[in-house]
């Protein structure tokens, strides 16, 4: 036990821990906005694009993050220019990113190892720069949250509100695009494609069902992300397991709360429906 605690509080793990904590907040909140817009699948597409961009950079002898940001930003730019975006566009992005990552990895010196790391993730090798960037990202997501939430919700329910009232929509659209790109790139670089996507996907999937109300569901979304992250971080060290799969498993397990909530609601409704008949 003491050996486990010694490892858990080892200074080597502090930076990875802070990085993951900040990313859990940023990615889960951004995932909630994407789910509200019915665009959550784009997170997986952009994460795959980030991995392919990172591998492209390795092949060209450039920093991984430069390539990841470049390709993900380009992919986001193309999506924004399309008149209508559908799941087919996201599917194309996912498959192209996956194939690009593995092909570039296969044909680059040391590329197979790096491409696997990008797909699977390796949080424990993150450094102070990662932690700093993740903390900045979390602040960039949480800080403007009330303003951004209101704007995105208004656009969701009243699509021509901004054009109809001559209010420029580019400030919130640009900020949201930048946040999504930064979350996917930093999440993929620090944790890997699928663990990052799990943070986008699972917390709001459960949070939107467990409680009523937008503000409360955002709070529950972040709590689920944090609990899942903390649990998997400790479990991975305690049982000497890879962190990424532990995170995905923990978040999937926590998401089962949505089914329990739905079941409780259905049971409650059935009881209420039966009450007048009994009376």
């Amino acid at each position: 036990m003491s050996e486990f605690l010694e490892i858990l509080f080892d200074p080597l793990f502090r930076m990875p821990f802070v990085t993951g904590l900040a990313l859990a907040i940023a990615l889960s909140l951004t995932g909630a906005w994407l789910r509200m817009r019915n665009e959550w699948l784009v997170a997986l597409g952009l994460s795959q694009a980030a991995a392919a961009g990172g591998m492209g950079a390795v092949a060209l002898g450039l920093p991984v993050l430069a390539g990841a940001f470049g390709v993900t930003g380009l992919a986001m730019g193309v999506l924004l220019l399309l008149p209508r975006v559908s799941n087919s566009n996201y599917g194309l992005l996912i498959l192209a990113g996956w194939a690009g990552t593995l092909l570039l990895g296969h044909n680059t010196d040391q590329g197979t190892v790096i491409s696997e790391t990008l797909l699977r993730g390796d949080l424990y090798y993150t450094r102070a720069a990662h932690a700093g960037a993740a903390l900045l990202l979390a602040m960039a997501v949480v800080g403007p949250m009330p303003w951004l939430s209101r704007r995105l919700l208004t656009e969701r329910f009243f699509p021509d509100y901004y054009t109809g009232n001559r209010i420029p929509a580019w400030p919130h659209r640009t900020l949201f695009a930048v946040v999504v790109v930064a979350c996917t790139v930093l999440g993929t670089d620090a944790m890997g494609v699928f663990p990052a996507f799990a943070l986008f996907f699972f917390p709001s999937w459960a949070g939107f069902v467990i409680v009523d109300g937008w503000a409360r569901s955002l709070a529950v979304t972040v709590v689920i992300a944090l609990v899942g992250y903390l649990g998997s971080f400790v479990a991975a060290i305690a049982f000497d397991q890879p962190f990424g799969p532990c995170l995905v498993a923990a978040l999937a397990l926590l998401s089962s709360l949505r089914f329990l909530t739905a079941l409780r609601r259905r049971t409650g409704q059935a009881t209420r429906d039966a009450a007048p008949a009994a009376g």
Partner: peptide, 16 residues
């Protein structure tokens, strides 16, 4: 009608 959005009526009206 969004299939899974927990926004309340009282949170929607103030948008306008």
């Amino acid at each position: 009608l969004p299939p899974e959005l927990p926004l309340l009526g009282r949170e929607m009206l103030p948008l306008l």
